[in-house]
């Protein structure tokens, strides 16, 4: 049976066994995919963070809560 990796039989000379993971030879592609995912994460973080704070500022200004700024800390607790 074909295998996704270099291992097709464990009954071999161990000193001849190198990498164990599947798809040996595709490391660069995996790195590119991982890097793209991470870059997307960081872009998502910055864009959502900007949008979230802009909305929070609008809501806080509209609600008038800022005039009684410390109140939320005294009022709300998750403890």
């Amino acid at each position: 049976m074909n295998s996704t990796g270099p291992i097709e039989n464990w009954n071999v000379n161990p000193t001849e066994v190198g990498p164990l993971y599947p798809f040996v030879g595709s490391e660069m592609l995996m790195i590119v995919v991982c890097a793209a995912f991470f870059l997307a994460f960081m872009v998502w973080k910055f864009s959502t963070e900007n949008a979230k704070y802009a909305e929070q500022v609008r809501n806080l200004r509209a609600s008038g809560d800022l005039a009684k700024a410390p109140a939320p800390e005294r009022k709300h607790s998750l403890q």
């Binding site: 161990p14 190198g18 990498p19 164990l20 993971y21 040996v24 490391e27 660069m28 790195i31």
Partner: peptide, 16 residues
């Protein structure tokens, strides 16, 4: 190097 075979499970035998 992140794409190197030693940055993963490896038995230490002949490099691919």
């Amino acid at each position: 190097e992140p794409w190197n075979e030693l940055m993963g499970p490896h038995m230490g035998g002949e490099p691919a």
